[in-house]
């Protein structure tokens, strides 16, 4: 995965969560499935998406929450 696709992937994840703020709670597994579909043409793997989620949470752009299951959200 090039740095450019990685940046696009991370943007897409953040945007998806932003778009559905207060409407849908995305579990990390949901994100993986959504992104696999969206980026199917660019050969992105499950592991790439997991790494993107890790980088986003490590940098604090996304945080985890819990409500009967773990989900990802924007920091308050």
């Amino acid at each position: 995965m090039t740095d450019e696709t990685k940046a696009q992937l991370e943007e897409a994840i953040v945007n998806l969560i932003k778009e559905f703020t207060n409407r849908k709670r995305f579990k990390p597994g949901d994100i993986v499935k959504e992104m696999e579909m969206k980026f199917s043409a660019s050969g992105i793997t499950k592991d790439d998406i997991k790494i993107a989620i890790r980088d986003l949470t490590d940098s604090g752009r996304l945080i985890y929450g819990y409500a009967g299951g773990s989900f990802l959200s924007l920091p308050e």
Binding site: R54, T57, G60, I63, Y64, G65, Y66, G68, S70, S73
Partner: peptide
């Protein structure tokens, strides 16, 4: 009440709200 947005940076677990 359970759950919520409690945790430490980068971790999705380890804290029970």
């Amino acid at each position: 009440k359970h759950g919520g947005m409690v945790g430490v940076k980068g971790y999705g677990g380890g804290i029970v709200g």
